[in-house]
Design a protein around this nucleic acid. Sequence first.
DNA 1: AGGCGGGATGTATGCGCATACAGTGGAGGA
DNA 2: TCCTCCACTGTATGCGCATACATCCCGCCT
Lengths: 365, 365
Amino acid sequence: MSAKAPTVYDVAEHAGVSIATVSRVLRRPGDVREATRERVLASVRTLGYVPSASARGLAARRTGVVGLFFPDFDAMRETTSFVPDRSGSVPVVADPPREDGSPGSDLLYFDEVLRGAEIEAWRNGFVLLVGVGRGSDSESIVSDIAGRVDGLAVLAGSVPDEMLEHIARRIPVVLIAGPRRDDEFDHVSVDNRAGMRALVEHVFAVREADGMLYIRGNIETPDDIERFEGFQDAIAAHPAETRPGVSVVAAEFSRDRARDVATSLVASGHIPDAIVCANDQMALGVLDALQAHGVAVPGRVLVAGFDGIDAGRHSAPRLTTVRQPMEDLGRAAVHVLSRRLGDPSQPPVTLRLPVRVLVRESTSP
Amino acid sequence: MSAKAPTVYDVAEHAGVSIATVSRVLRRPGDVREATRERVLASVRTLGYVPSASARGLAARRTGVVGLFFPDFDAMRETTSFVPDRSGSVPVVADPPREDGSPGSDLLYFDEVLRGAEIEAWRNGFVLLVGVGRGSDSESIVSDIAGRVDGLAVLAGSVPDEMLEHIARRIPVVLIAGPRRDDEFDHVSVDNRAGMRALVEHVFAVREADGMLYIRGNIETPDDIERFEGFQDAIAAHPAETRPGVSVVAAEFSRDRARDVATSLVASGHIPDAIVCANDQMALGVLDALQAHGVAVPGRVLVAGFDGIDAGRHSAPRLTTVRQPMEDLGRAAVHVLSRRLGDPSQPPVTLRLPVRVLVRESTSP
DNA sequence: AGGCGGGATGTATGCGCATACAGTGGAGGA
DNA sequence: TCCTCCACTGTATGCGCATACATCCCGCCT
């Protein structure tokens, strides 16, 4: 690293032109005569000139960056200070099979959204700035990020409304995965309701379930509410004469909690013919319990989840689920941002992405 | 979005102070009397003021951003333009088990590095800027990113050396996962050599393999070279009187290619007692072939890979491997950057992260 | 009462670039 | 030959903020 980074002035002097010409060579090369352009580019190379995005952003009033903000996930809170661990010996450790879900599977959710956002940003000529909330500092972080981008995508619920409105005065904001409310923001989300309805109808189609258990998640969350509505839709649409008995419990989206529910169900002897869960983790917990007690899936009970997490592809039996297009969520968010940046006046947009029911062995006939 | 975002001047006027005071309230609140501070903060809230990072970055000569640059991965090249697909019907599709690795598994590699980088950036008070190369435009993109960050982490090999040196004149650069060469950059990488040596020694410890096959990857890459050296180390360290016969082939890190290799091996009748592969994908290909021909693993042949990809935890038998700490790579990269930003004069650092041999059923005694 | 020190605030400047506007020179037309 | 027009380049300014330095206002000491 040299003492001081070269600026337009240095390049201009070196090339014997004015700074305006240097700037033009970089921004609108067609406006400069070829000979001059070459001379300037040569100087750029010689001096190792890299334009300052801060100065450019200030002068041009746009940064070319879009932001993506997540709430802090568990993995971050746990992390200790990073101590570079000089290598030397290589530990050889047994790695027994784990039955419980790998930790931080919700983290994969973010990964996919992020990947989608990155892809779409890339295609639209933006770079992506990733921010993660840290608990109470969240507000200042969001604000910080908001100051450095042309548009911001935020996971719904991770930032207080007041702050969002604050930010929206400056740049466009798009909310990811929340329900549309009466606000001015753009929204992208998945069709939880239709997805769950289709899932439940699929279960009915496979077998005329005599009794069905629906396991909700955290009943406070929009996702859970929408999925539950989808469940109710399916029940309501079912011909009355064969409508099965249904019962509903909640298990906080937790595999352990769902496992407990299923275990006590088996103990009570009242085993339903089908168990549909508001997410995959809970469905896996149900599988755990049923398997532990020798209850056949799908032979005796059909089981289905929601999300399409990877673990569901590796369970035994593999889990029927509703696959959320996480990556598309990220893409859609940036897509919408990008469009709004092009035309700030358009009315708020809501994009509801389609989901797919993935039929696997846990609901085989 | 209002017509115009408020600036320090607006806030200053609204609060009846000078812009210097506004700036101080935000940057060094202790320097301002409490009453004044409160008044300014109130104005900030009412006006919806968000500081411009561009202006701040320009004035303060630092941005508070660190960059992470990846080469473009396949998933990106394939992507078509994003067309928002309005939802409606929910397709119900069968999702049969796939035996081949899920596409884009190398993409997961990036995800993990990225996650680590994000975590560490977060802990050091930076935000993370993610950039992805697009083939030939790579150079301009890297340069673009370099202009907006205080430091840059780059996947080794994804950017021409000349460009790196160009950038390094302006900001610190750390290379991820490459071998240390005679350069001025900081490096972080994993201990491929020691890892492979430990893996091979583990295989010897499990069973006195009479013949061992080592399947290399793409022999041009540093990773492959280092791992092969580790393999040779293990062989050389083996007592001469019981040193097994070894053979070596290359299969381009490809599952398919490795499957072919193993298949023809079985056909030839010369089946070694152990097969060690330079990555997991190839090891999985070997498992495919052996299983297809009824050759027992680990009963007849021991198989091991390198990387610790997820698919190796779900194969049958599960795959013994060397787990690379991808996430730590990302963390280490940002850690090193952060340290150098604090003390630019320190000599180039090389961090070689330790790996772990994960012993699973594919090398059970 | 005058002077002094220091905390609180204001003034002025520059960070590096984009760009509106003003030159400059040469080709072509009258 | 002189004027016009166009292509190209230079000059001057402002983007929004941080900060060195100047000022001001008090309380307090002598």
